[in-house]
Design a protein around this nucleic acid. Structure first.
Lengths: 192, 192
DNA sequence: AAAAATTTAGGACTATAATCCAAACCACGA
DNA sequence: TCGTGGTTTGGATTATAGTCCTAAATTTTT
């Protein structure tokens, strides 16, 4: 089992992760994290000397859980189409959170792209992770050439739908959008 | 001609407008604005008592210029298809800015949607403005029923393409994306 | 069990941001 | 010309955020 120290660190990362998502990176203060994680003020600096470091840890954490999720999908889901649709599914399943705080990956990138290039390149890794996994599925589906472009298109569609659904607080738009993506994927699969 | 005071106020709004776009609202400080507008420190508070007020003025300004732009398009461009394509065109024309700072309207909404609901509802007006104008064009094109949904879909496509193009710093993706949107619009028009 | 290393804890310190203020300045009508 | 209202200044003030420090407590190692 994890040591107490490891668990404390994890609590901090979890708290920061949530807050960065809900409030955004820049608007989240150390005080916020400290309160949420229920760690004494000064102690947090033992684990993370700067806010940047904390963000990097959060991104690393997201990378790990995402990697795990994707590899499990790969293990448990047989066809590329079903895997791609599983990806779309989490969008739909996350409706309430997406309407509240947008896409965790997209909004972080949009925020950091402004004026914080070093951090942005870290956040971009998350996109890369999904992008490469999606491309792999498209390639297996029979589109090795177009795999990258298709994966970007799928990501773009998702991002767009989420932004608009959030702006208009419209879960229906998210639902119709994901259905439409599925139709598109099924057509791609059919005519591969 | 505008009074000196009016011109000063306008300089402040222009500076804030640019900075909010380039750095984001939360990361822009009064000092930044003061420097950019070349107005003495204290003077800015004569015009805007709070940062919120300044944002509202910026949004108002954007609303005005956008309204003007859209009504000019309506005057000078004859068919709904051409008008819609004109909209797509500014996306393409703005490639460098979009790659640098994302969509001015989208990124502002994404930023403010996190934890700043009052401001968010102001920023949303910008979307409404475009959305209603786009819907009008779709209605004229022959889709009165689907006008709203189509306008949201067009906005979503634009947002998605911009986010991905920015994340991957890929002007080509933006170009292909806008071309694809145009194809879609032309098909809609053809089979109206 | 003592020594060494890690972790906790709270507060101090510094930097930066937002906001306010009061004196000076200026334009213009009485 | 004087005074009055709007405008300009720069610095003062306050709040908040980020960072650091040091001593105590705890855990680990010897």
């Amino acid at each position: 089992m994890a040591t107490k120290s490891e668990r404390t660190q994890q609590r901090i990362i979890d708290a920061a992760n949530q807050l960065f998502y809900r409030k955004g990176y820049n608007r989240t203060s150390f005080t916020d994290v400290v309160d949420e994680a229920e760690v004494p003020r000064g102690n947090i600096y033992y684990y993370f000397k700067t806010k940047e470091e904390m963000l990097k840890a959060v991104i690393k954490h997201r990378m790990e859980t995402t990697t795990l999720m994707l590899s499990e999908w790969e293990k448990s889901i047989k066809t590329p189409l079903d895997r791609l649709e599983r990806f779309v599914q989490i969008m739909y399943d996350s409706t309430p959170a997406l309407l509240r705080s947008g896409c965790p990956m997209g909004s972080l990138n949009v925020e950091l792209a402004k004026d914080q290039p070093e951090l942005k390149s870290d956040a971009k890794q998350l996109f890369d992770l999904f992008q490469q996994w999606l491309a792999k599925q498209f390639a297996q589906m029979g589109y090795p050439e177009e795999a990258r472009e298709l994966s970007l298109e799928l990501l773009a569609r998702g991002q767009g739908i989420i932004v608009i659904a959030q702006v208009y607080q419209d879960p229906g738009f998210l639902e119709r959008g994901t259905k439409e993506i599925n139709r598109w994927l099924e057509n791609l699969d059919r005519y591969a």
